[in-house]
Design a protein around this nucleic acid. Structure first.
Lengths: 238, 238
DNA sequence: GTCAGGACATGATTTTTATCATATTTTAAA
DNA sequence: TTTAAAATATGATAAAAATCATGTCCTGAC
């Protein structure tokens, strides 16, 4: 947690995500409580919020920026399981099941993050049934997404999965002002670790997509040129 | 829901799973409420509890028996995501996130199941913070398992995944009285749909395992002969 | 019992994917 | 700016896995 810098002490009430984040669905008194006890920091690109295997000490709420959540495979290969953006909460999984973190969280760009200590999180959750319900909803949604991903990993070829991943990145982070460039910089290796394939395979297929005119590649900038064809390539029907 | 037969109206208080199931961690008054409103039935082997795509009407609690939970892939291929046993609860995922069922549940053998209507489930959950917390724990555990499975599907070869699956079946259902025969009958296709591979591949690798002396195959009966070697084959370290 | 359909098994082949090798380009540090 | 290291790209090859084909075995209906 070294090298993080405190941000201006913004209130939850004025936070840009006060209508998106689960936390903001807590009762007003608890939002106030969270507001008092939270700690805000800026994580530079590449900095780690928490590491797989360490003990959870609280939950994080992204104020602005992007974070990846990834698991370490047995051979050390990274598997990215989630991409998070402003308003998203992370670190609750391990905390709720009383285990160590099963994933690592790393900032994909300079990111402002509020930290809510473990005890506060648990106590608010135990008192505020509404928030608890929202939390269950969140967990259920994540579980749904995970089970969908399991099915796709098991049944779809890599070409389809790459197309799907590009669309997923678009859904998550959207486009830049030009309306076609994916609004995040990921390395080819990270894309591969999101798709679940070898880096070379991801690179090769991206080149194919480029040849087919579906995408344009400019370093880490990826432009989606033919959205519909990408959807067709992803072979989505659910 | 045709062809189900009511069981003796057993009380939750006398239920064999009263120490295992999440529901039994509710406050006593709510357990009583559930006890009054639940409906118990027997599902014959192969019968469906609910279907992917239909609207959830409540949650199910397995009194005795075995159930598989599976998703339909885009090409219609089944992907089994969970194996459930006595004390396990199912059908809550869709209910909590307010969607249709994203999976189908089918009895793997004659199974006694209690059904708790949607409204009761939701209202108890909203009033009993302890139960809500247990539910979050359950969801968190499932999410953890799902993310582990994602990593393994993405990174492990099929041989390792099959070994892992056999160990998973053992963990879930245990052995018969002889201490070596897996206590469930699954078709080769179901095993393949659990591993995430083609049926022929699963059959072939099971034959390999047999040649290696790790398992013995007798129709749908699978005996684990060399547990340690199977663990080594699964290449587990987490 | 016997007969048909499905499950299981196994060989042959093709397809997919990973790995290895090697440029080329980009990036970041000195 | 130079330079080394890392990232990207692409070809060649090997390995893994799916598919196709065929035969056998098992099981339940009659």
């Amino acid at each position: 947690m070294a090298h993080t810098h405190p941000t201006d002490h913004q209130t939850c009430q004025s936070c840009a995500n006060r209508f998106n984040s689960v936390f903001c669905k807590a009762k007003e008194e608890y939002v106030n409580l969270i507001n008092e006890q939270k700690v805000c920091n800026i994580y530079k690109k590449g900095q780690t919020l928490f590491n797989e295997g360490s003990n959870p000490f609280g939950v994080f709420c992204i104020n602005d920026g992007k974070v990846k959540l990834s698991h370490q495979g047995d051979d050390g290969k990274e598997q990215i399981t989630r991409l998070l953006k402003q308003g998203d909460v992370l670190g609750y999984r391990a905390l709720l099941s009383g285990e160590r973190y099963s994933a690592s969280a790393v900032a994909l760009e300079d990111t402002q993050i509020c930290f809510i200590p473990k005890d506060l999180f648990i106590s608010v959750l135990k008192q505020d049934a509404g928030l608890a319900f929202e939390m269950m909803k969140l967990l259920s949604d994540e579980l749904h997404k995970a089970e969908l991903k399991i099915t796709h990993l098991a049944q779809k070829p890599i070409r389809e999965r790459l197309a799907e991943t590009l669309l997923f990145i678009k859904e998550t982070y959207g486009f830049e002002e030009d309306g076609i460039t994916l609004n995040v910089r990921l390395s080819r290796e990270e894309i591969a670790n999101l798709v679940g394939t070898a880096t070379e395979s991801a690179i090769r297929l991206l080149s194919d997509f480029k040849k087919d005119g579906m995408v344009e590649l400019d370093g880490k900038k990826i432009k989606i040129l033919k959205h519909k064809e990408l959807v067709r390539t992803a072979n989505l029907q659910d």
